[in-house]
């Protein structure tokens, strides 16, 4: 009894996928470099804000984190909707990666925002439209991950459905500030002082590259997970599991 040649090739290919990808490595180095430059610019290049003072420095990482969370929306849309239509694992893996990254950046936004608010508003949290809708979106995405981990065979479908719900919420989060004037500051990017503007864009660039590098890494791991599952099945079918 031997393993079919196709499975052996897949095993070899999976080993190859564990090696370092030079493009991913270059992208990661660039991303880390830009993030470090952004942090340096935030503290030593951008001028201090005259009304808020030092606490305004949170803005340079808070806004790019929110931007990165929103980058997950198209990833979720493509992954979840295409999975529901085609039922192919590839799209589910893309949606899952998007969910995980949206949670990561969403948590950053939800923690850093209140830290700024404590100084500016005097309280950590207000039930403003944008804050509440962002919290609901992150909680929906956490529910996606929980469903995926604990549900049965239908978990991928339920997770895709919840992702679409989170996606609709993302649209709501984006336009909340324009539609309702709550406590959250309006979009002020165009009115920024040139050095503040440059700092913000370096940070946005750093976060965007980091997002792409993390998404790429997560997709590589996802495809490897599927390959390992397939090899396990073939090993069992060939009677080699003892």
């Amino acid at each position: 009894m031997t393993l079919p040649p196709k499975a052996q090739i897949e095993l070899f290919d999976s080993h190859r996928r564990l090696t370092v990808n030079p493009w991913l490595m270059t992208l990661s180095i660039l991303a880390v470099g830009l993030l470090m430059l952004g942090a340096w610019m935030a503290f030593f290049y951008a001028p201090g804000e005259k009304v808020m003072g030092f606490v305004q420095k949170i803005f340079y990482f808070h806004v790019p984190a929110a931007w990165s969370m929103m980058l997950s929306a198209p990833v979720l849309a493509v992954g979840s909707i295409t999975y529901l239509i085609t039922r192919r694992d590839l799209w589910d893996r893309i949606a899952d990666a998007g969910v995980e990254l949206a949670i990561l950046f969403g948590i950053m936004v939800i923690i850093s925002g209140p830290l700024w608010a404590r100084k500016a508003w005097g309280v950590f949290w207000v039930w403003d439209v944008r804050l509440t809708s962002t919290l609901v979106m992150v909680l929906t995405l956490v529910a996606c991950k929980i469903v995926r981990s604990y549900s049965g065979p239908q978990s991928k479908t339920i997770s895709a459905g919840l992702s679409i719900l989170a996606l609709l919420n993302a649209v709501f989060v984006w336009y909340a500030v324009d539609l309702w004037s709550g406590s959250h500051p309006p979009k002020l990017v165009q009115k920024l002082e040139p050095r503040m503007f440059a700092t913000l864009w370096v940070c946005v660039g750093g976060f965007t590259l980091t997002y792409i590098a993390l998404l790429w890494s997560r997709l590589r791991i996802g495809s490897l997970e599927t390959a390992v599952e397939r090899i396990h099945m073939k090993v069992t079918e060939a009677g080699l599991d003892n």
């Binding site: 830290l115 700024w116 100084k119």
Partner: peptide, 19 residues
């Protein structure tokens, strides 16, 4: 009433530490 008493440095360090 509390905004003046809050230590901004501590909040900024906490935020960047969290990132």
């Amino acid at each position: 009433p509390v905004t003046e008493e809050v230590n901004a440095s501590l909040l900024v360090v906490s935020a960047y530490g969290m990132f």
